[in-house]
Amino acid sequence: MIENELRPLSRLGGTPTPKGNIFSDYTAPLFIAWQLNAECNLECLHCCEEAGHQMPNELTHDEIMDFCQQIVRAQIPYVAISGGEPLLHPDFFTLSEFLRRNKVSIKVETNGTFIDHEVARRFGQLGFRSVQVSVDGATPQSFEKLRRKGNWQRTIDACKYLVAAGVNTEIVFVPTKFNIHETGDVIDLAYRLGIYGFYTGKTMQIGRAAQNWDILCPSDTEYEQFFKVLSQKQAQYDGKMKVYYYPDDVIEELKYRLEYPSTSLLVIPDGKVKLIGPLPFICGDLRKHRLAEIWERYQKAWQLTHVRAFTQKVINDSRLLAESNRWQELSIN
C-alpha cells in the first residue's frame, strides 16, 4: 500500500512536525503582503500605515518588476497588493498583468476611489482573486468622518462596477466609535450589492489608529454588541455571502505568531521587509537581498532574543504597538 495524505491546515501553525506545519518547512513564503506605495488620496483616521505622501526612495519600476520575477520563480502562490492607495501607483497594472500571466493569485486592497467602469473591466479581465474595497460605514456621514476626503457614494459605485464586471468583490469594515453601530447595515448593503465576502475584526492600535485611539476605539460593550451582530449576520447569510470576522485582537495574534510565525512576508514601499505588521522590525531589503535570502533572514529573525523579548513586551503593554511604524533594521548573520 502506498501512503498518501491530504491534510488541511486551519492556520499555518499548529503542531510542529517536519511536514509543513511550521514556517521553516517551506522553501519560500506562501504569501506576500506588498504595500506598493505610501501615497493615498485619503487621510483616514485609522490608517495603520499612516499613508498619505509618497515614501522617499520607493522601489523603481525595474526593481518592482525584478521582485515580481523573483515571486514567480519562487512559485509564491498568492500576493496581496495594498498601499497607500495602490491604484495611484503607475506600475500597478503592469505588475499585476505580469503576475497574473504567471498564474499568481492576486488580491488588491483599495479605497475604491479610482475604480470606474473601465478599471473594473480591467480587473475582470485579469482574473484577480479578489478586489477588497474599504467600506467603513452604511452612511456617508460615518464613512466620511473616518475616511477624511473620502466619498461614500463613489466607493459604493466602485463596488457596483466591480460586481458588474464579474470581479470577486469583498468589503472590509474597520469598526470604530463612529461606525460600529452600522455594522449590520453595512453587511446588508454588501449583500444587496452582490459582494462575495465581508471582512472585519477589531481595529488595530497601529499607525494613525494608535494616534487617534481615544476617539476611535469602541468600548467593550460596543465590541460585545458588534460580535453579536456579526454572529447573527453570519448565520443569516450562510451560503449566500461570506461574513468573516477575526475574533482576536492584534495582541492575541502576536502571542500566536511568537510561537508559530506565518509563512508570509510583508514588503513596504521602499523594498524593506517587515517581520510582521504590528512590530517595528525589518528583516530584509529587496535592494540588498534576494527573496530566498530574505526568507532565511525572516526565519532567523524570529529566533533573535531581542525580537522575542520586545514582542513579549508588546504583548504585556499594547501601547508599544505605536512603535510599529518606527522601523528598526535587525542585524542578522
Binding site: L6, K19, G20
Partner: peptide, 14 residues
C-alpha cells in the same frame, strides 16, 4: 502544499 486562495485554505501532502 496546496493553497486555495479564494477561501485562503492551505493543505499539505506527503
Amino acid at each position: 502544499v496546496i493553497f486555495e486562495t479564494l477561501c485562503e485554505k492551505v493543505f499539505v501532502t506527503n
